[in-house]
Design a protein around this nucleic acid. Structure first.
Lengths: 128, 128
DNA sequence: CTTGACCTTCCCATAACTGGAACCCCTATG
DNA sequence: CATAGGGGTTCCAGTTATGGGAAGGTCAAG
């Protein structure tokens, strides 16, 4: 199938798929007219990539996961290590964002939000 | 004061401060030897920027907040609107990350993590 | 005088795309 | 048959907010 069809099937933009080819994540065949031809396997790989990216795995993580996915002899522990590491990163991000949110929510709460120039948010941003 | 001192005082890397000058967030004076000279006001602005960035405000948000900070006649509502919008963004991010974490935690949990090639994480990534 | 710590500008690189220009290919229609 | 449209192709540049490093000027101390 051509790039448009695989884009629709996987939900990935064509641009992104070309980019994934550029960096070697997929290697579709070519027709005589230089159009890319995607096999079912290519489409499946792209599906996999889309899901993994949606779960926040980096491209490099995806490359590793894809290699493991294609390796019939992989150990599930290898996959789990990548996923666990990523899980830890996500939890750290959530923690940081939650702190941010709390600080910011305090500032917003303390602000009257009226026409007066006095603003506790700006004061809060000046420093502790 | 020179860039090194202001960097130490604000906790921002000198590189970042030069970048902030580049994009017009601060405009330090220059000495005859072309060294930047930062006033107390410049240092205070950078402090403000550092805090706002640490709370995840984008550079453009910072630019707006800085303008409001310098405007004696601003209405606190203007500031609050920016902060509230950013707060909403942060909460959306937290929500998305939390969903990610839950999905991923399920996958990790279901994986034996041993030497067998059978891996539910990869299966989960293939699609629903 | 030299050493070392500063400072300067300039250019390149990151992650993961996205947009746009300029151009080729194929088919359907007036 | 010309053309309009909707594919496709490559390549180049831009995005965010810096970080790295080269090549070189400046300054205070020993």
């Amino acid at each position: 199938m051509n790039i448009g069809e695989v884009a629709e099937r996987t939900g990935l933009p064509a641009k992104t798929i070309r980019y994934y080819e550029d960096i070697g994540l997929v290697t579709p065949a070519r027709e005589a007219n230089s159009y890319r031809v995607f096999s079912e396997i290519d489409a499946h790989k792209l599906q996999f990539l889309g899901r993994a990216r949606a779960l926040g795995f980096s491209i490099e993580d995806c490359r590793n996961l894809l290699a493991l996915w294609e390796d019939q002899d992989r150990a599930s522990a290898d996959v789990r290590a990548i996923a666990q590491e990523h899980l830890d990163e996500i939890e750290a991000k959530i923690k940081g964002l939650t702190e941010m949110r709390n600080t910011l929510a305090d500032l917003v709460q303390s602000c009257a939000g009226d026409k007066r120039p006095d603003c506790p948010i700006l004061k809060g941003l000046e420093g502790p």
